[in-house]
Design a binder for these strands. Structure first.
Lengths: 218, 218
DNA sequence: AGGTTCAGAAATTTCGACAATATGAAAAAT
DNA sequence: ATTTTTCATATTGTCGAAATTTCTGAACCT
């Protein structure tokens, strides 16, 4: 779920990185927490070197901040960070959507419809029982947004979007815990977005996606 | 205070990463070269673990590809990669310029003018003696583009631009060695860009920057 | 000839222990 | 009160080595 698509083979380093990534996203490791290698080893296992490598990885991804001679800490999560991530996500995903609409074929549309089908089920479930289906919903949402980008033809843009989405997850899950997410509006936006995409209505699709991300962080 | 303060403190890992980064950019480590830890240690020094960490860093930056259980290789550099990087750079830098023109004050303009002054000197030098002043020119060019982005207010956008510029450097220096860079045109574009920026002519500035990047990779 | 199998070599990944260095805070001195 | 010194703690880097995986190439079979 929190893995990266790069290579499916799992090394210890990647496993550790994934666990820490998850715990940061879920808020179990709050922003600015000092990440002491020895403590982490007690929690997750692994050797000191493997952990350094894992944290180095996360630091380039943006979830961890590394300072020379002062170790690692969970990246801070300020209002400015949220705004930066949101603004950028809107721009990047719209760019991806625009390119994808130029290159995407029917199979691309099909993949989006399929992902949206899963997502709408998750949306129904999460409206009924927010706490129980939050993760399922977040994953379906990730998949949906990823499918849209998939046909843009730019691996670097896709990777950047994944990074931003990963960074935004912390804020999204926090908002979710506080019941600050308007699922109904998000659901409507997703449905209309799919409609605009299959209708090849470029302008409308871009506007919906942009407003959707800026408005709800979803 | 504002952006992420990249601590200039040098650890062994960062030094190693910097050296490898440079040698990849300069083509001394050609694309797809296998990066065997033991060989690298003989060349640069450092311990095996430090090198693993350095290469992990570079792999997230995009200059090195890591495959589980199969070690590290210099990232391949195909025509598709060049096109991807160029397209993205144009979009990202234009976005940065647009935001910077909204937020940038007179000091921002001053920094650009200063950087352009240095750059134009380097451009004069590189026209006379391409091989001798290539690096100076590339560095001045980097600084110039970085200054433009500086006022955009998005640390993540700035970092992404730096990554893309770093990735494009390989292609740029290769083109330079083959004498395929049109310095005169690039110089004109830079000069006109500065003029449009200080005149606050948003539309013209964006068009010049976009055409400039797409046209010359500079 | 062409392909397969399999043992040995080489490389990667991981781990533990230890030394060197830097940081942060308490203690001492001015 | 401010500065300096000291010291415990944490980070960083090195060495050595074991476990695992991949690569290589020779022998074998069809």
């Amino acid at each position: 779920m929190f893995g990266r698509a790069k290579s499916d083979a799992a090394t210890v380093v990647r496993l550790l990185a994934e666990q820490v990534r998850r715990d940061i996203s879920f808020g179990e490791l709050p922003p600015d927490t000092k990440l002491k290698i020895d403590d982490l080893r007690g929690r997750y296992g692994g050797s000191a070197h493997s952990f350094r490598e894992a944290l180095t990885l996360l630091s380039v991804e943006g979830l961890v901040e590394a300072t020379a001679q002062r170790g690692f800490r969970v990246a801070s999560a300020t209002q400015a960070d949220l705004e930066d991530i949101t603004r950028l996500r809107a721009e990047i995903e719209c760019l991806g959507l625009e390119w994808a609409m130029q290159r995407g074929d029917v199979r691309w549309e099909g993949a989006i419809i399929a992902a949206h089908h899963t997502l709408s089920k998750a949306e129904d479930a999460v409206v009924e029982d927010p706490d129980g289906h939050a993760l399922e919903w977040d994953e379906a949402n990730r998949e949906f947004h990823a499918r849209i980008m998939a046909a843009c033809g730019s691996p670097r843009l896709i990777e950047f979007q994944e990074q931003l989405f990963q960074q935004s997850r912390r804020f999204r899950l926090a908002a979710l815990r506080e019941g600050k997410i308007d699922y109904a509006r998000s659901r409507d936006a997703h449905a209309e977005l799919v409609k605009a995409i299959v209708a090849r209505d470029r302008k409308t699709a871009l506007k919906i996606l942009s407003d959707h991300i800026r408005g709800s962080l979803v």
